[in-house]
């Protein structure tokens, strides 16, 4: 089975309007390729987890569904789980 390309997934998610940035805990590293650190994308056996920080003012349900539809062609048959870990506050970014 063809493996999804994590970098393509990352670029696809970050390009969605309403996505501020990807999020990741400091202990969670994904060294998918040398010299590269893709935050917020986890490729597991049966699913792909995407952790992100949303911009203020977007409907988070629609944002999640939009991210899923953007990423869907890139993950083959794997399930997609979008985790909105935080939200950027209006005017001053994350607190």
């Amino acid at each position: 089975m063809t493996q999804p390309d994590p970098e393509a997934i990352y670029r696809s998610v970050i390009a969605c309007p309403g996505v501020s940035q990807m999020s990741q805990s400091p202990l969670d590293t994904n060294p998918y390729s040398p010299g590269q650190h893709l935050t917020g994308v986890k490729l597991l056996n049966d699913k792909v987890e995407l952790h992100l920080i949303a911009k203020w003012g977007f409907n988070l349900v629609k944002l999640g569904n939009e991210v899923i539809s953007c990423v869907k062609p890139l993950v083959y048959d794997k399930e997609i789980e979008v985790y909105i870990d935080d939200i950027e506050l209006p005017g001053k970014g994350d607190v």
Binding site: G64, V67, I80, E81, V82, Y83, I84, D85, D86
Partner: peptide
């Protein structure tokens, strides 16, 4: 059907 969204 395509996936789920979890909000922290």
């Amino acid at each position: 059907d395509h996936g789920k969204t979890a909000i922290s």
